[in-house]
Computed example of a mutant assay.
Amino acid sequence: MTSAGIATLIVRYGLVVLFFPASALDKTLNFKGAVAQAREVFPGVFGTLTILAGLFIEIVMPLGILTGTADRLAALIMAGYCAATAVLFKRFWQPGDFFKSGDSKARTLFWDFLKNLSLASGFLLITVGLAGHGLDAFLAQPFGSSHPYGG
């Protein structure tokens, strides 16, 4: 692998490490706690299904991004996942203490919300490329590879 390929791998791993292995492992080891958190938004069995879907996304999509296998589609799914989790679970507008001096749950959630949107933007760069020309390639062949390592 060339030095450019190694750099690409490092950058891609930097984007996905939060999900695979970190968040996926946390959901696995603390499954009951993850389901309890999901049930705050999705009651009953839907909370469990949400966590199982999240586990699938957090394991399979990063592997696609790292290996270059349908990486544009995997990155698009990760972008949607990040945006959805920001809106569903980082609801900074609810606590009502955003402008309170000192500690604020709302501001903490706000920074997490922005982090999720920033990650979504990073994943969209994989989907469309830095110059945006990859959008045509993605639309023409959504399950194709961007060949990130020069292959």
Rank of each mutant, 00 (worst) to 15 (best):
G47Q: 06
I126T: 09
S145L: 11
T48K: 04
V45D: 13
L117W: 09
T67F: 08
G134N: 11
E58Q: 02
I77R: 13
A84E: 08
L88D: 01
I77Q: 10
R72V: 08
V45R: 15
L130G: 06
N116T: 02
A53T: 03
R107Y: 12
A38H: 01
V41L: 10
R72Q: 12
A34S: 08
A120P: 10
L25I: 10
D136Q: 14
A84P: 00
L124C: 05
A74V: 07
F42G: 03
G33E: 15
A24P: 06
A137P: 14
D103K: 15
S104F: 09
Y149F: 07
F56E: 02
A75M: 07
A53G: 01
L25S: 10
F98N: 11
G129K: 12
L130V: 03
T2M: 02
S101N: 13
V41K: 11
R39H: 06
F42M: 07
G96I: 00
T127E: 05
L73C: 06
M1C: 02
A140G: 15
L124P: 08
Y149M: 09
R39P: 01
L63N: 06
G47H: 05
P95Q: 12
G122I: 00
G47W: 04
Y13A: 01
L124A: 03
T28E: 05
L63I: 10
L114P: 09
N116C: 04
F92W: 14
A22Q: 02
D103R: 15
V60A: 05
S118E: 04
F110T: 09
G132L: 10
I6D: 09
K90Y: 11
L125V: 12
M78D: 07
F42Y: 05
F123K: 02
L15I: 05
T8W: 06
R91E: 07
T2H: 00
L66W: 06
A137V: 12
A53V: 02
L139D: 15
G64T: 07
G96P: 01
Q141S: 14
R107E: 10
L88I: 07
K100R: 08
P95R: 12
L117R: 07
L29M: 14
V41A: 04
G129H: 12
L49T: 03
G96V: 01
D71C: 03
C82N: 12
F99V: 08
T8A: 05
G44R: 14
G129N: 14
D103I: 06
S23A: 12
F20I: 00
P21S: 11
Q94Y: 15
L29K: 14
L73T: 05
Q141W: 04
S118K: 04
T108G: 13
F138L: 08
F31H: 03
T67R: 11
V17I: 11
G96R: 02
F31R: 04
K90C: 02
K27N: 09
G5S: 07
V35S: 03
L15G: 06
A86S: 07
D103M: 11
L29Q: 13
L18P: 00
I10G: 12
R39C: 06
K115M: 13
V45Y: 15
A140K: 12
K100V: 02
L73Q: 04
R12Y: 00
D26F: 15
G144L: 00
L73E: 00
K100G: 08
D71W: 04
G80Q: 10
P62F: 07
D71Q: 08
F42N: 03
L88E: 00
F19Q: 02
V45Q: 15
Q94A: 05
V87Q: 09
P43H: 15
